[in-house]
Design a protein around this nucleic acid. Sequence first.
DNA 1: GTAGATGTGA
Length: 561
Amino acid sequence: MKALTFMQSHNIWADSVTYSELLKCCISRGALREAKLVHKHIFSNGYHPKTFLINTLISMYVKFSLLDDARKLFDQMPERNVVSWTTMIAAFANAGLGYEGLRFLVLMGRDGVRPNMFTYSSVLRACSGLESLKQIHCGIVKDGLDSDVFVRSALVDNYAKWGELGNALVVFNEMETRDLIVWNSVIGAFAQNSDGDEALNLFKRMKRCGFMADQATLTSVLRACTAMALLELGRQVHVHVLKYNRDLILSNALLDMYCKCGSMEDARFEFSRMVEKDVISWSTMIIGLAQNGFSHEALEIFQVMKSSGTKPNYITVLGVLFACSHAGLVDKGRSYFESMEKVFGIKPGREHYGCMVDLLGRAGKLDEAVELIHNMEPEPDAVTWRTLLGACRIHRNMDLAAYAAKKWEDAAQVRKAMKGNNVRKEPGCSWIEVNKQIHAFILRDNSHPQIDEIIRQLNHYVQRLKGVGYVPDTNFVLQDVEGEQLEDPLLYHSEKLAIVYGLMSLTKGKTIRIRKNLRICGDCHLFAKLLAQMENRNIVIRDPIRYHHFQGGVCSCGDYW
DNA sequence: GTAGATGTGA
């Protein structure tokens, strides 16, 4: 403003370029009041601002989140160019008004203004469905704008957003020039859609093309390792991470990787040396500790978190309740649950109720658990009933089990109907990392090159275990509802094959780490427990829900899962 | 001389 007054006092009139510079200055300093004064000044003295200056004004209001003011200016413009339209479309997309953004694309066409690559990359962010995405894609090709990196990048992101990873990859592969951001985009897309394998392939391709990974790349690669529980590869990525420091997101991803790979020593070390911690860091650690069977430590960390001044959120409280249920701390869990709204301002959601059902059910308070389900505000779903069913199995309450099973089935039906009728049951699959190679064992699939030797060894171990009291247990009717199918021979469940392969190929003393796509069945659990003791080995099995650390004949889950 | 893209916790 001083500049403006100075110019006036010397009788120099500002032109559109000067005004525009002044506005940019206001935006960078966050000075809305001054920007408004400039706005007023522009429209005084009969000055006719050029289109680009009004565009700057619009963008100023957008940056201050004053969409209505921006819209008003836009409506009053004598003529609008591509930039005017694009600025509005981008603003709508950012404000979550995608529909309005798409409407503006049509309107600009009627106004005789042709969209350019800037327009399309904003329109793509406004896009709210696969159908419109395909239409926009056609428009891009028709307008000959599909070679722009930004547009392609937005297309890749969008296809990934709607689960169309194949299309995302096609669009990506067709690109003539790629930059680091597109690489990060496509790697992130696969990592987020739990296709860690493809994410890691792309990462290798990227390096072959001569690109240097940055924090965003490494974060996605870590996420892929995390999903696949690849500890060794994760450690390698960690070495790259050391080249960068103080990126909170990356540190959080690293922390989660160690937790999910079941290596709590590394996780604790990483956590202790993080200079900056946010709610995600704390939650990751709390959940990681709880899932790996260190509930008391998780609750201690929660206390430290509160005194550090970081406010817990929905997910943090979930981790805390999970820790309580895991350690059987009924009173503590109940008091956290009952006070969470008052103390932390977080309304209990379905997942919090689920944790409480788990906690109460596990402690044998089945009546209280049922009462909680009946009175809960969010609608109980299949998972809620499945939790109660698990508790019934532990406490051998057949009547309640039948009731829970019925309700579970009803809820699952609804879910099935929503998803469409072709929900196929996945075959059981386990993975183990040996010498940085992933070995997959799939039920009824004998393609592993050493399968004959593995089965021979497995039979051998089973015979020896029978000598110390192992009885293959086929009676898991209630518990096995989401596990491997009953008619499948228990003996060849994939985790057994993976464990035996681990014993065969990993050096003595090395922990055997296995990841599984389905929940472990009781027989395999017993098998792992006894084998860990007999062979004096640590075995860690991660199923979709929790971790089992087998050591010296016991499991960290306390035989409840 | 105004408008556009990527990564973390259940």
